[in-house]
């Protein structure tokens, strides 16, 4: 929707969240440049360097996306109010959820059931991915597709996605924060703004807010599954050396 019904303004907080969104094209070109550099480096190191596997490519994309997620978080007014210790705890708790949300929201707008669209613009055919995948990855992809379908039915919009990111980042269930009360209050403010937004933009759909919130535990469950899968791949030495991705995996399991 471009504008709410007359007289009902979009909550200021939601507009602020949209303003803080990163430029997708900028992130895409940064990550693409990084991948290009990486492949060049690999081929110069060895004459018969193997091309990156789909899984390897997706790990590198996830790693680079994590860098942009940290950049995004640092740009948020609410986040800046916290000490680095609390910032780290929040990010350790939600990095995989934010990665899954990034993936899911791209898929929702991609609209194709048989391929995955990466932030780099590359399309990965699901058929070929699943042909090499074990049961765990197949279940993960299946779960992702179901969530995408739910959100497509709801026609999740970009302002709601922006709110989701804050609800995920400022998770009031994170323990041992120095400023717990603040995180809880941000969560309350964001959910209040999202409720107000859905009521003003989708007044005919009063259940929308609760239906949106129901998707968050599903996203959480998927991210736990994805982390378990990545851990397993990491322990078997199959995750390429991705600094931030592996650091996050270690931090959470420590």
């Amino acid at each position: 929707p471009s504008a709410p019904p007359a007289g009902l303004p979009v909550p200021a907080l939601v507009l602020e969240f949209v303003r803080c969104e990163q430029d997708e094209l900028q992130v895409r070109s940064k990550i693409s440049a990084h991948l290009g550099h990486l492949q060049q480096e690999q081929s110069s190191r060895s004459a018969k360097a193997e091309p990156l596997s789909t899984f390897g490519l997706m790990c590198h994309v996830a790693d680079q996306t994590l860098f942009s997620i940290v950049e995004w978080a640092r740009s948020c007014t609410f986040f800046k109010e916290l000490k680095v210790g609390d910032q780290m705890k929040l990010l350790h708790n939600c990095w995989s959820e934010l990665l899954v949300l990034d993936y899911i929201s791209r898929q929702v707008h991609h609209g194709k059931q048989d391929s995955i669209l990466l932030i780099t613009g590359q399309e990965v055919e699901l058929g070929s991915l699943l042909a090499q995948a074990g049961v765990t990855l197949a279940e993960l992809v299946q779960g992702g597709q179901e969530l995408v379908q739910h959100l497509q039915e709801l026609q999740l919009d970009r302002r709601e996605i922006a709110c989701f990111k804050y609800l995920i980042l400022f998770n009031p269930d994170v323990k041992l924060l120095e400023n717990q009360v603040y995180v809880e209050s941000v969560y309350e403010q964001v959910s209040g703004a999202l409720l107000e937004y859905t009521l003003c933009v989708y007044p005919q759909h009063v259940e929308r807010f609760s239906q949106l919130l129901l998707r968050l535990p599903e996203l959480r469950a998927l991210s736990v599954q994805a982390e378990d899968y990545l851990c397993y791949k990491h322990l078997s030495g199959e995750v390429p050396c991705n600094n931030l991705l592996i650091e996050m995996l270690h931090a959470k399991r420590a």
């Binding site: 940290v70 800046k80 680095v84 931030l244 931090a251």
Partner: peptide, 18 residues
């Protein structure tokens, strides 16, 4: 464990974010 978090801490600490 501290070493594990070095990169994230660096990313959060750098520049103006104090």
């Amino acid at each position: 464990k501290k070493k594990d978090n070095a990169l994230l801490r660096y990313l959060l600490d750098k520049d103006d974010n104090t």
